[in-house]
């Protein structure tokens, strides 16, 4: 680079640009948080749903599945699993209950977590709540 463009100019772009974009990011974040109540389905956020989220985390479900497209790519997307099986929590609960302990020979299988009926209900309700977040039309198909 030529002598017209000096190191101190480069340094000023770094500090100036960095600070400016941090402030812009904070401003956008502030606006986002203001708008969230319209989008994030918080009305459905019951204690049961919160319990479901805790179970989701304490069993590391994200280690195989995606939720709203984020997570691991080993098992199906669950952000719309509620809609995929007939807008119902029945399938989710039954699926959790019937996983074989020793897996399925040669195939991927979800572990048997031995959840109680109440826990299965909470997880299903959490997935129902997640499925009703406004995700701008994602995923493109029901298959996730």
């Amino acid at each position: 680079m030529n002598e017209v463009f000096t190191k101190s100019m480069a340094r000023n772009i770094f500090y100036g640009g960095g600070v400016f974009f941090i402030l812009l990011f904070l401003a956008l974040t502030f606006d986002t948080v203001q708008q969230l109540p319209k989008l994030d389905n918080r009305a459905a956020l019951t204690e049961q749903v919160a319990h479901g989220k805790a179970l989701w985390e304490e069993n590391n479900c994200i280690g195989c599945h995606t939720l709203l497209g984020e997570g691991a790519y080993f098992a199906p997307e669950l952000g719309n699993v509620y809609q995929r099986y007939g807008n119902s929590t029945a399938f989710i609960k039954a699926f959790l209950m019937t996983r074989p302990k020793e897996g399925v020979p040669g195939r991927r299988s979800m572990p048997q977590f031995n959840f109680t009926a109440e826990e299965r209900e909470a997880i299903a309700e959490f997935l129902k709540y997640s499925s009703q977040i406004n995700t701008a039309g994602w995923p493109p198909t029901i298959q996730g």
Partner: peptide, 9 residues
């Protein structure tokens, strides 16, 4: 990362 997670479009 904010396209499809329920934040403003």
């Amino acid at each position: 990362h904010y396209f499809w997670i329920g934040v403003p479009e």
